[in-house]
Structure formats: C-alpha cells, structure tokens
C-alpha cells in the first residue's frame, strides 16, 4: 500500500514534507519576503528549465546551458558598458544565447552528432570564449534602469518571477496548442515516424536548441542584473545544467505520477462496466 502511494504521489509528498519541515524548523521560512526570495532564486533555473524541456521532449539533451548563460551574461555586461542604452544589450544577450543554441542545433540535427557530445563540446567552447573575452576579469557597475528591469521589485514582487511565469505560460501554450509543439512531441516519440509523416525533423530539432539558447539568454539578463556587484564567471553556478536537467526530470516524474494516479481512478471506474469494453472489441 505504502509502495503504491509512493509510486503515485511520491514527488508531491516529498515537496510538501520539505515545506512543512522548513516551516517548522525556521520561524522565517513562511515569511512572505522569504517565499518571494525563494521564487526569485528559482526563476532563473525555471526559465532555463523551460528551454531545456523543449530539447528533452525531442529526446535530446543540452549540457551547455550553464556556459551559454555565462557567455550571454558576459555579452550583456560588455555591451552595457558601451553606453548604448539597455535595450540593445538585453536583446544581444538573448540573441547570442539563441545563436549558440542554433549552433548546437546544426551540430545535432544537421551533422547528426549525438546531442550529448555536441553540447558537451559547446559547454567548453562557450565557457572558454567567455573567459577569453573578459580576460577572466570582473565586469560591474550597471545602469540602475537595467538592474530594475532585469531583477528589480514591482511592489514587493520580484520582476524575474513575473518573467518566469510568462515564459512558462508561453511554453505551455506552444507545446500544447501549436503545430510546432506537436511536432516536438512527435519527434521525441518516434523520430522516423515523424519524418515519414512529412515533419521537417531537422528544422524542429534545431529550433528546440535555439529555444533552449534563448531561454539561457533570458536567464542571463536576470543573472546579470542580480549580480550587479560584479559579474564574474565564477558567479554562474557550475552546477546550472544539473539543476536545470534535474528540474525538468523531477517535474516530468511529478506529472507522470499525477497522470498515472488519474488513470488508475478512471480504470477503476472502467471495471464497473466491463460489458461495454468487451462489446467494443467485438465489432469487426
């Protein structure tokens, strides 16, 4: 019995338990300010995890999200110091993320290099390039408008949380309600069947990596704003891809368990009317 419950609701239970434990062990945990702070901290990984979801759904993997974010971040920092306003730096950061994602996509979809290897290579390339451009030095002192737009507060609510929410909603929409989203699932389900159904597999796969790169770019904007005191590559968590991939997998397991629990209950209902189901198999 316990086994079955754990199998169906395990992740949900674990999160609730953690929440209760932390609430009890620290009087500050349940403060609104603290909860908002937690949201702020997970917003970057959420955005990148959304990008990663597109890639993982095509049965690929992107190991380069950490360095991609770092590189975009460096580009944003450098362009901010050119005194050309904040619009172009933000856009160029996102664009650079997308561009590196595009390179991943070309390597994987067009040149058929396994995603694991291609993105592992990109990981070193992007990290190296970021180090090379900055000479390993810190970039700091960003304009206050930039800091506000990227990581400020809007009546106590951290703006990145809003960004993360918007990104999640858009992604849900694309994945569930567009042709492109359906193609992503189809490719992950059976690449050859998708190709023989006339789906442009290379195009869709490449775009999955571009989207992941763009998500890294958006993450980089927030990261840059938050780390105003001094942007240094060391500030980008070396474990970013692990955290992000972990987030995708944990949520996938969560929804899978949810779906199975739902299906169990409907199957139980189905048992009450077996005559109907048997009838259905007989109508040849």
């Amino acid at each position: 019995m316990f086994h079955k419950i754990a199998d169906r609701f395990g992740i949900g239970i674990a999160i609730v338990a953690l929440f209760i434990f932390l609430s009890v062990s620290s009087p500050h945990f349940l403060d609104i300010a603290n909860l908002l702070n937690i949201l702020l901290q997970v917003s970057i990984s959420t955005i990148i995890a959304v990008g990663m979801t597109f890639v993982i759904l095509t049965s690929g993997i992107d190991l380069s999200v950490g360095p991609l974010t770092a590189f975009s971040s460096v580009i944003i920092g450098l362009t901010l110091h050119l005194d050309i306003g904040i619009g172009i730096p933000i856009l160029s950061g996102i664009l650079v993320g997308g561009l590196l994602g595009f390179m991943n996509g070309i390597l994987i979809a067009k040149l058929k290099i396994p995603a694991f290897i291609a993105t592992l290579g990109m990981m070193s390339v992007a990290r190296g390039a970021a180090l090379f451009i900055t000479n390993g030095q810190t970039i700091h002192m960003f304009p206050s408008e930039f800091r506000f737009i990227s990581a400020g507060n809007l009546t106590n609510i951290p703006i990145p949380v809003i960004y993360a929410l918007v990104v999640v909603v858009i992604a849900i929409f694309i994945l569930n309600y567009t042709k492109f989203g359906r193609h992503i699932y189809a490719i992950g389900g059976n690449k050859e069947a998708a190709r023989l159904s006339g789906i442009n597999v290379k195009y869709v796969e490449t775009w999955a990596y571009i989207i992941c790169g763009i998500a890294c770019g958006i993450g980089a904007v927030i990261l840059t704003g938050r780390l105003n005191a001094g942007l240094n590559l060391l500030n980008v968590s070396p474990f970013l891809q692990q955290i992000v991939i972990g987030a995708v997998i944990v949520s996938a397991v969560f929804f899978d368990q949810y779906r199975r629990a739902k299906k169990d209950s409907s199957a139980a209902k189905g048992l009450n009317r077996p005559s109907q189901a048997v009838g259905a198999t007989k109508s040849y």
């Binding site: 389900g189 059976n190 023989l196």
Partner: peptide, 8 residues
C-alpha cells in the same frame, strides 16, 4: 518502428 508514434 516508423509508422506510429506509439506514445501518442
């Protein structure tokens, strides 16, 4: 193998 996406 290549006709259906079985998981859909």
């Amino acid at each position: 193998r290549d006709g259906l996406v079985l998981s859909m």
